[in-house]
Every structure is written in structure tokens, then in C-alpha cells.
Design a protein around this nucleic acid. Structure first.
Lengths: 252, 252
DNA sequence: AAGTGGTCTAGACCACAAA
DNA sequence: TTGTGGTCTAGACCACTTG
């Protein structure tokens, strides 16, 4: 009924319950049948029912409370998944030729501002980079970046002529958590000159701070784009707020 | 070792494996031990191991292939969870008094532009709203909104004097998917006047389109704020990109 | 006290894909 | 062909928490 492909029992149960919730038939606060009731309804083992309910609880659709039961949660459209591709990918998806130019590269002991940006008290060496990303002949985004050489010493020797700093880091730092701050700004003279705009032109800024698996700050980056060049998209779907992105490629 | 609270076996297995991956010990493409090997390692049933691996696959950390095994996936820091609270909540979190003023309210047959914004060919009735959100005495954001009265006929009778339109909808429409587009813009004269700014001042725009559980468009909204007022934050953590937000309150 | 969820076991059968 | 994951069963014990 609901889909064409072969469907496991726990999947069928989950989709049945989700349909009732998403359609509004079961309002927030409504009590979902207990595991024993669902066992009887679907004629299956308790673990199978439990699996369906556990998934729904993980996705935030229901809340489970011992002795009380499972309840439909309040709608929570307050978070969405924001896609943040590499600048290069972004440009190529627009059908434009991508290239970048390294505009500045300074190795230095961290200044106070650097340490504030990285959120660390340690006064280690850092690498300061500025980089212009181009879509065809036009400037697309101006990147200023700080790399913590205490954490990524190899960056000091990187040439950044093939890979842009952001991509280079993604290839050399195993994994990380990150925080993005998005805001608008009127371009100052320096930024306007870099992006070939009039001063005052509205620009979109995305500031990213990244931490390594040990919690130490890896890099801080600010990406500025003219308002007409760049737009960010975030999507929310209650069906699968937790879903994994599709496999980009098979390993090996 | 890893945490203080009591820890289930599947959780312990998952954290063990995640630590190896996040630390870089197991690079992308590395083969994770098979379920049988992990059974032997941890001395538990296969279902327990399977549960840990299934969760990791759901979160995108590994990829599972029959006959081949489970493999560490490529790092994918390209998506982050963007928090998008109600404007009212946002203002109150800044420690300011929140109120809003309804500035326009028009019921009409949908214009062509309305249908484009809603993404529907149907020429049904719509409600056009404009609304100023204030933080203390200062304008905080200007909202323009279109509500599809075919889908939410009750909105025609709503007064919007207690609840802002966005909150009213969240209470009256059961669930939905949504798409957000974020960009910057120079304020035109009209927007500048509404937000008490100079024309040309950079503003952050978040445009939201929402669909009901049946896939029909519910509402389209544009929120504009002066660049210094508002900043969006998106976080990425490979540990739990799929994690449900904490329960805000118990149902009932 | 009792109902509910949380977890676990020791099997089982099957589908799939790589060797 | 065979190892691997995907799913399921029919129990079990425990913890929690509400009635």
C-alpha cells in the first residue's frame, strides 16, 4: 500500500505509525499503543515492535516513558539540515568553471585575535591564508583562514596550489565537529575590492570554526560572497531528520 | 573509561568503534570487524553487535555491504544542523522583551507571484500578512507571509493578536517539511523604513516554504533582519548528526 | 504493585554479493 | 560457493515510574 519495494515488518510498523502522526490523526501528546498491543496488532515479536518505536524515538517523533507508554511529541520544526558543500563543488554545480587564487600566506605566532578566533589560550604557531574563489571570470567568494599549526603542522609545508585550503584540510584532518555562523554585512573597502563590488554591497558571511577529534581547534575560516552570488539552503523533513546522506561512493 | 553513567553493551561497542574512527586510527575505507568477530571480542550475542553497527550506519559513519563487511565512510562535514527558533524565542533568548505588530492583512485570490512563491498552480484564496517583530523598543525583524487558505482555511478567521502568524501555524498545522533559503540583501527603501535603517543597510533574509503532511504548500514566509541583529548558527558533530533534540517538555 | 520500556540471548532463515 | 549482513523469534531479566 504505502510503498512498492519489499518491506520489513519493523519498517511497515514504523511507517504506519508515522503516517498516523504526520497526518494529524494522532495529535501531540497522543498515546501510541504499547509494545504488547502492537505485537498483537501486527502478530510479531516484541523486539520487532521495539525496533520501530526506538527508531521513531531517535528521530524525535515520539517520546517513550517507562510505565507510562509512548507519546507523540510536539512538532519541532526548529532545526533543519543545512548543506554546506565545498566552494569548489558549489561553483561547479552552478555550471561555472572553478579556480582559486591564493592571495596571502603568513606563518606567525598567534596574535591575540587569532587565539580569540580559534578559541584557545595557547600561543602556538598559526598559518594565515587569504584566498579568492572564482566562478568563471568573476570573483565568487573571498576566504580568510587561520590554521592551527600546533594541530596540523603539515599545513606549514602545503603549497595549496592544487587543493584549496578547505579541501586540503578535509583530506588531512581525520574528522571534526564544526560550528557555522551565518550573517550579512555591508562590504568594507577591502572586501569590496577583493570581490569587485561597490563598498556597501551586501555580502553573505559564513564563519566556520572546526575542531579535531581531540577537541583542539583546527581552523577558523570566514567566507564572504556578494549577496547575489550565494544562497544557503536548509531543509527539514520530519520523516528522516536523522537520515544519513546517500553513499557518495563505495570505499575503495 | 569513556563515560560515567551505566552503559549498555551495544552503546559500549558503538563508542569503541566510533572512537577508533574519529581519532583517525581507522581511515575511510578501513574494514570494521565483522559481526562474528565483534561477538567474540565483546562476548555478546550477534543482535547486540548488529544494533551498534546499524546505528553507526544510520548516522553515516560506516557503510555496510553484504558479504564484504562494514567500512568506514569518507568524512562528510558538508551538512550541519541549523537551529531556527521562533522569532519570539530568539528575542527572549537575547534577554529582550518581545512583541509583534501586525502591519498588513489581506485576503485575496492568489496572484501569479503568490503561486510562484507557494509553488502551486492552484489559484485558491490566500492570506497575505506583514508583521514587525520587536526586541524591546527596536525593530528586530520584518516578516512577510503568505498562507494558503485552501490548506489552512482556519487562518482566515485567526486574529493573530496573541500568537504571531508563525507560531499560530505551528499550533494549527500538524506537521510539515520545510525549506529555508538564506541570503543577504541591501535594504530597499520600504524595508529600511520598516526596520528603521538607512537604505542599503545589509540585511539577512531567511525565506521559508512549508508543506503539509499531504505535500500541499501551507505557507511561504520571508524574514528580514538588520545584519547586526541576527546571526544563524549551524553545528555539525559527527558523533550524532542524527540525534533527536532533547525533550522540551513531557506531553500532557 | 504492576505495566511499561530497555536490553539481552541463542538461536534461525534468507538475500545478497564477492570470491 | 560461502561469508556477510538483514531480519525475525520467543523467550528472559531488569529498571523505572506511575497509579
Amino acid at each position: 500500500m504505502t510503498s512498492g519495494a519489499t518491506q520489513s515488518i519493523h519498517e511497515r510498523i514504523r511507517l504506519d505509525l508515522e503516517r498516523r502522526i504526520l497526518s494529524g490523526e494522532w495529535r501531540p501528546g497522543h498515546r501510541v499503543p504499547s509494545e504488547h498491543e502492537l505485537m498483537a496488532t501486527y502478530g510479531c515479536a516484541r523486539m520487532t515492535v521495539s525496533r520501530a518505536l526506538t527508531q521513531m524515538a531517535a528521530s524525535g517523533l515520539i517520546e517513550r516513558r517507562r510505565k507510562a507508554g509512548s507519546f507523540v511529541r510536539q512538532a519541532q520544526a526548529s532545526s533543519a539540515v543545512l548543506e554546506l558543500p565545498d566552494v569548489g563543488q558549489e561553483v561547479r554545480q552552478l555550471g561555472e568553471a572553478y579556480r582559486f587564487e591564493l592571495r596571502a600566506r603568513v606563518r606567525r605566532r598567534s596574535l591575540r585575535l587569532d587565539r580569540e578566533r580559534l578559541g584557545t589560550p595557547e600561543a602556538g604557531p598559526v598559518l594565515w591564508l587569504e584566498c579568492l574563489h572564482l566562478a568563471g571570470p568573476r570573483p565568487y567568494a573571498y576566504e580568510t583562514r587561520l590554521i592551527n599549526l600546533d594541530v596540523v603542522p603539515a599545513a606549514a609545508a602545503a603549497s595549496f596550489d592544487e587543493l584549496a585550503p578547505g579541501e586540503w584540510l578535509r583530506h588531512h584532518v581525520p574528522w571534526h565537529s564544526a560550528e557555522h555562523r551565518i550573517r550579512a554585512v555591508n562590504a568594507d573597502e577591502s572586501l569590496a575590492a577583493s570581490l569587485d563590488l561597490q563598498p556597501g554591497h551586501a555580502c553573505l558571511l559564513t564563519q566556520r570554526c572546526t575542531w579535531g577529534s581531540d577537541g583542539r581547534p583546527v581552523t577558523w575560516a570566514l567566507l564572504a560572497s556578494a549577496c547575489e552570488s550565494r544562497e544557503l539552503v536548509a531543509r527539514f523533513s520530519p520523516q528522516r531528520p536523522w537520515a544519513a546522506p546517500p553513499p557518495p561512493s563505495a570505499p575503495r
